[in-house]
């Protein structure tokens, strides 16, 4: 048995998936948001829903720079779960429904275990978690279009981006059949982005092309000072966009939308 265990561990290669999002390339088209919803069986929002009660595992923020109107520039920031290496949501969950998967680095949200206390939502600084406020309802016939690789969620539980786990499972199956150890896949957002602004990679693999991207000077992350160690990287060569990273930057940026 011990020998078997050793052997299994050897073949269970570990990953640390992360993503790099090029904000200079992003046009804010929203294809990623749509692809994400379709991939993850997000039920169509009922009429009474607003942007604060709907499920958008991925959303694109429109941020304007502080300059006055004629010179005002805009950037679109796609935001989803940052897959933190030290997730603030994980240790607050009272019943172990959140787990940082040591094999993939993905922060798993176990909707089957979740009882909807929403403590993790309060704890997440990126507001990347969503609660199912309503019973999911698919118009007649639309349930046929559901992605069989992703279970639909019931009302009253918290969900979030799990880096298209269904696609990961499929890649795993493929690799197992091929006898390969190399699990590569594209999440729906990355695949659907017409500007190819979203790229996924294995942060653990020194030969992965993502390493070069991370080392670029224009790469930054949001709210690193909180110590959550996010695995989502953003890129921009524009100074004011980079300064969005922290709330109180030394230059004193103020991006409140008072107007």
């Amino acid at each position: 048995m011990a020998a078997g265990a050793k052997e299994m561990n050897k073949t269970n290669r570990k990953y640390r998936y992360g993503m790099v999002i090029d904000l200079d390339a992003c046009t804010g088209c929203g294809a990623c948001v749509v692809a994400c919803a379709v991939e993850n069986n997000v039920a169509p929002a009922p009429a009474k829903v607003n942007d604060r009660t709907s499920i958008t595992l991925m959303r694109v923020f429109q941020v304007k720079d502080p300059a006055p109107m004629p010179a005002r520039k805009t950037v679109f920031v796609p935001m989803m779960c940052m897959q933190c290496d030290d997730p603030p949501c994980e240790h607050v969950c009272p019943q172990q429904a959140v787990e940082l998967d040591p094999r993939t680095g993905i922060v798993d949200q176990m909707v089957q275990r979740c009882f909807g206390c929403r403590y993790c939502m309060a704890a997440c600084p990126y507001h990347a978690r969503y609660f199912n406020w309503f019973d999911p309802e698919w118009p007649a016939g639309m349930e046929q279009t559901l992605n069989p690789a992703v279970a639909p969620r019931m009302r009253g539980v918290v969900e979030k981006c799990d880096l298209c786990h269904g696609r990961f499972h499929e890649a795993q199956d493929r690799a197992a059949l091929e006898g390969s150890d190399n699990i590569t896949y594209q999440p729906a957002c990355a695949e659907s982005c017409p500007a190819q602004a979203i790229r996924i990679g294995d942060l653990q693999n020194p030969e992965d092309p993502i390493q070069d991207q991370i080392r670029k000077p224009e790469t930054f992350q949001f709210l690193v000072k909180l110590g959550t160690k996010p695995k989502m990287f953003y890129q921009s060569r524009r100074g004011w966009v980079k300064r969005l990273a922290e709330r109180a930057s030394p230059n004193g940026n103020s991006n409140r939308r008072d107007a």
């Binding site: 048995m1 078997g4 265990a5 998967d101 094999r103 798993d108 799990d162």
Partner: peptide, 14 residues
């Protein structure tokens, strides 16, 4: 557990 192949929750859930 016996085989030492412990998977995360989403290893077997979707």
């Amino acid at each position: 557990k016996e085989k030492g192949a412990e998977a995360g929750c989403l290893g077997c859930h979707r």
